[in-house]
Computed example of a mutant assay.
Amino acid sequence: MSAACATGQHDKHDVYAELCPCRGLLDLIANKWTTLAVGALENGPLRFGALQRHMEGISPKVLTQTLRRMQDAGLITRTVYPAVPLHVEYELTAVGRSLTVPLRGLRDWAEKHLHEMNV
């Protein structure tokens, strides 16, 4: 059985504890669209349309929701450039960039082991 999750900023957390706030973060970063968005933004900022083209199969609504969640969590920044039409770019923050290696490993693992899985 897990111990209760700490509430202080620098206290030890336990994702197995029911009320641990880490679970919300884990839910965000384990989401397939977040994983793909981090990979798409790995090489630098992209506009919404470029992200949508890179992430085949994502609807504009789901991409918007994913980007908002990522921005709210501090994984990306959204920069609006005053132009006509507006030019908006999304870019990984430092903490977002720290996710690139583990999430790349997860994507690589999925591609390598797909043939062994029943999905």
Rank of each mutant, 00 (worst) to 15 (best):
residue 18 E to D: 10
residue 62 V to I: 12
residue 23 R to L: 05
residue 37 A to N: 08
residue 42 E to F: 06
residue 51 L to Q: 02
residue 30 A to Y: 13
residue 73 A to W: 02
residue 36 L to M: 12
residue 39 G to Q: 14
residue 15 V to D: 06
residue 57 G to C: 13
residue 17 A to E: 04
residue 20 C to Q: 00
residue 73 A to K: 07
residue 69 R to L: 13
residue 18 E to P: 08
residue 59 S to Y: 00
residue 30 A to D: 09
residue 62 V to C: 05
residue 63 L to F: 07
residue 67 L to R: 05
residue 58 I to C: 11
residue 27 D to A: 10
residue 29 I to P: 01
residue 59 S to A: 14
residue 70 M to H: 00
residue 67 L to T: 06
residue 53 R to Q: 14
residue 56 E to T: 15
residue 66 T to W: 01
residue 18 E to G: 07
residue 65 Q to I: 11
residue 72 D to N: 08
residue 51 L to W: 04
residue 35 T to F: 11
residue 59 S to M: 05
residue 50 A to W: 04
residue 74 G to I: 11
residue 34 T to C: 13
residue 27 D to P: 01
residue 63 L to M: 14
residue 49 G to E: 14
residue 21 P to T: 06
residue 64 T to C: 03
residue 58 I to T: 07
residue 40 A to Y: 08
residue 45 P to T: 03
residue 74 G to Y: 07
residue 39 G to E: 09
residue 47 R to W: 07
residue 32 K to C: 08
residue 50 A to E: 15
residue 18 E to W: 10
residue 31 N to H: 09
residue 71 Q to N: 08
residue 59 S to C: 00
residue 63 L to N: 04
residue 44 G to K: 07
residue 51 L to N: 03
residue 53 R to D: 14
residue 69 R to T: 04
residue 18 E to C: 01
residue 49 G to M: 09
residue 34 T to M: 01
residue 13 H to C: 02
residue 48 F to Y: 04
residue 14 D to K: 06
residue 29 I to V: 15
residue 46 L to I: 02
residue 74 G to H: 07
residue 41 L to C: 02
residue 75 L to T: 01
residue 76 I to N: 00
residue 56 E to M: 09
residue 14 D to P: 00
residue 41 L to Q: 01
residue 24 G to A: 05
residue 35 T to I: 15
residue 47 R to V: 13
residue 63 L to Y: 05
residue 52 Q to R: 15
residue 64 T to L: 08
residue 54 H to S: 14
residue 21 P to M: 07
residue 32 K to N: 10
residue 41 L to F: 01
residue 12 K to W: 05
residue 41 L to G: 03
residue 73 A to V: 05
residue 52 Q to D: 04
residue 62 V to H: 07
residue 31 N to I: 01
residue 40 A to D: 11
residue 23 R to H: 04
residue 26 L to V: 11
residue 45 P to M: 10
residue 27 D to M: 03
residue 14 D to E: 12
residue 73 A to P: 04
residue 63 L to G: 03
residue 59 S to Q: 12
residue 62 V to G: 05
residue 36 L to Q: 13
residue 74 G to C: 09
residue 61 K to E: 10
residue 62 V to L: 12
residue 25 L to W: 02
residue 31 N to P: 00
residue 74 G to R: 08
residue 31 N to D: 14
